[in-house]
């Protein structure tokens, strides 16, 4: 069943509202914001790889606030323990029982800062929680919040004391994006704003949690994917597997990620069906962190290489 156009429209309006209000605080991060929201509404996690001080944290906090969701933050260090993330049971003298104290992961939006500074053990605990959307501590399983969205950041050039995420774990992130330097005008406005108000009051909630879930659901149920588009996605997947630039191609989870993000992209573009452009646009952000480039191409712009791979794939019509 196709939704009546009116329903889709009100949802789309809500999305645009979120986007506009966030943009007022996030100058020059339009692209990153859009991708972050796509990732969020596709119910996948986001990895932002960029230099420190470009507003990764601001982006994450703003989104959480605007969507009226609970926000938690984990600052990763090399002495961070898994229980610092998941929470732990502490003996309560009065009740004479162990009580579970949930960690910061029990929030709707969790910012994991500098994820590659945590030890492998901690990383895998986090990533497992991201995948399973539940925590098991002392034999008891605790469901995580829903919606559950992790924004992890990592610094690309920091080499001292980092534990790079293995590909298998990068695969758990639906998208990997950069924020990049803001343009001159935006940067000027950021500085001005920071100067004027000491404590930057971040965005007030624009919509309620129920609306967020509603939008997520309608994207899942109401956006039509033609066989032609699926075939196109699989063609792209196949070409990554055969590419001369890559050692390993895209996983099936990767193909799923392209499909889901493309679907959200279609929704945000006001369409209830996918077109190849949705796929192309999302492929750049869903593929590079999942595939292994040959050594000689490690240093080059991976998005550029990917674009050249996609260029070889003809669109359905």
């Amino acid at each position: 069943m196709r939704p009546s156009k009116a329903v889709t429209d009100t949802r789309l309006e809500k999305f645009n509202e979120i986007f506009e209000s966030l943009l007022q605080h996030l100058h020059g991060k339009e692209k990153a914001l859009r991708l972050a929201l796509i990732s969020f509404f596709s119910q996948g996690h986001l990895l932002i790889e960029d230099l420190p001080g470009l507003g990764k944290t601001t982006l994450a906090v703003s989104i959480a606030n605007a969507l009226g969701l609970k926000f938690g933050r984990i600052q990763c260090t090399n002495d961070l323990l898994p229980s610092d993330i998941t929470g732990l049971s502490i003996y309560n003298k009065t009740t004479e029982m162990f009580e579970f104290h949930p960690g910061p992961i029990f929030n709707n939006i969790v910012l994991v800062d500098e994820i590659n500074r945590a030890t492998s053990k901690t990383q895998s605990a986090l990533l497992e929680a991201m995948q399973e959307r539940q925590i098991t501590a002392e034999g008891i399983t605790y469901k995580l919040e829903s919606p559950f969205f992790v924004i992890a950041t990592q610094n690309p050039t920091e080499h001292h004391g980092t534990y790079p995420l293995p590909k298998s774990q990068l695969d758990r992130f639906m998208m990997q994006i950069n924020i990049g330097y803001p343009d001159k005008e935006s940067e000027k406005r950021i500085i001005m704003e920071v100067m004027q108000s000491e404590a930057r009051n971040l965005t007030a909630p624009v919509i309620r949690k129920e609306d967020v879930v509603d939008i997520q659901k309608s994207i899942k149920d109401e956006i039509y994917i033609s066989d032609k588009i699926l075939a196109y996605i699989l063609d792209i997947v196949k070409s990554t597997r055969n590419s001369r630039y890559l050692i390993t191609g895209l996983s099936t989870r990767g193909a799923l990620a392209i499909t889901e993000t493309a679907r959200t992209n279609a929704f945000f573009s006001g369409r209830d069906f996918l077109i190849p452009e949705d796929v192309k646009e999302m492929a750049e952000f869903t593929i590079p962190h999942r595939v292994v480039f040959k050594d000689e191409y490690e240093g080059s712009d991976k998005r550029e290489i990917l674009r050249s791979i996609i260029k070889e794939v003809p669109v359905p019509v």
Partner: peptide, 9 residues
Amino acid sequence: RMPNEGLEE
């Protein structure tokens, strides 16, 4: 139009 080009693109 290139064969790899979407219609909208």
